[in-house]
Computed example of a mutant assay.
Amino acid sequence: MKKYLIALAGVFALGTAALTTQASAASYKVEKGDTLWSISQDEEVSVKDLKKLNNLSSDIIVPKQKLNTGKNEEKSYKIKKGDTLYKIATEKGVSVGDLKAINGLAGDTIYVGQTLALTGDKVEAASTQQVEPKAANPVAAAPAKSAAQQQPSTQPSSGKTMTVTATAYTPNCAGCSGVTATGVNVKANPHMKLIAVDPSVIPLGSKVWVEGYGTAIAADTGGAIKGHKIDLLMPNNSQANSWGVRTVTIKVLN
């Protein structure tokens, strides 16, 4: 499906420009350990909608099964003034590395009018057509941000505010099964934003903004997690040790 945007500019002059975005229904391929609940959190769609979109009468899913998430997936993006690879990657939900690999880019320089592929599908002029610098204005590449810099630093305006003690754990910690109290396989999803909580303080399933960590889902419990204590999922020991023990502000968003 193609959408055309026509812009009118000037009082006495009329100009038109067409901006084309190719979209298709996005799907998710079920992996071992996935549940409808974990997929709904990753894809930001409710379990009820997932079941309705895929005509499911139960919560049973199997590996390699493809689920319609109801989203539109953009295939390409036309660069405009002020864009950087980092900005595009952040807005479109892909990494800078993937953008460069998909489009055969050796560096971070991009040009106004250039078309970038957002997926592995072949997109006309995305990676084969070179835009001459003389015919286009180069867009300066922004320096890559560290993981800490990418974390949200501004508190959400709404939500119940608390001060808690926050520790960190990994999917492979000693005594950990790799599956949370709500059935999420964290070994299969080590980069998921997830926290362990005391359900009497923070209900399981709540979305929680954590200072220095971002917005996570309360999807696990722990024997030592009582009262105003939380445990943050980290993908590896290095990041867990770097976090250590902190006193942070959180906001329960729902």
Rank of each mutant, 00 (worst) to 15 (best):
I79V: 15
A101I: 07
T90W: 00
K64S: 15
V94R: 01
E44D: 15
A106D: 14
D42K: 15
S57Q: 14
V94W: 01
G93N: 05
K80D: 07
D59W: 08
S76G: 10
E91A: 15
S57F: 06
L85Q: 02
N103P: 14
T69S: 03
D49C: 04
N55P: 02
L99H: 04
D98N: 15
G93Q: 04
S95L: 05
Q65M: 12
A106H: 06
E91M: 05
G82N: 03
K51T: 11
T115H: 04
D42I: 11
Y111L: 11
I79T: 10
Q114D: 02
L99A: 08
V94A: 06
D59T: 14
K92V: 11
Q114S: 05
Q65P: 01
K66R: 13
E73A: 12
G107L: 01
Y77L: 09
T90R: 14
K52P: 01
S46N: 04
G97H: 11
D98C: 04
A117W: 01
V45S: 12
D108R: 02
S57A: 13
G97T: 15
N68H: 13
E73Y: 00
G120S: 13
D98E: 15
K87A: 15
K100L: 09
E91L: 07
D42L: 14
E91R: 10
S46W: 02
V45T: 13
Y77I: 04
G70N: 07
D49A: 13
G113W: 01
L53H: 12
Y111N: 07
S76E: 12
A106S: 14
K48L: 14
L99N: 05
E44I: 06
I61K: 03
N54F: 11
D83S: 11
E44Y: 08
V62Q: 10
K75D: 08
E91C: 01
K80M: 10
L116H: 08
V96E: 05
D49K: 14
S46R: 04
L118H: 10
I88F: 06
L116D: 03
G93Y: 05
A117P: 06
E74K: 10
L50G: 06
K64I: 09
I79W: 00
L56C: 09
A89C: 07
L116A: 11
V47K: 00
G97W: 02
A101L: 13
Q114M: 03
K64W: 08
V96P: 01
V96L: 10
T84F: 02
Y77N: 07
K64D: 14
Y86G: 12
S57W: 06
D49G: 04
D108L: 07
K78N: 11
S76R: 07
K80Y: 07
D59G: 09
I88H: 04
V96K: 00
K81R: 13
V62S: 09
I110F: 03
L105V: 03
S76L: 12
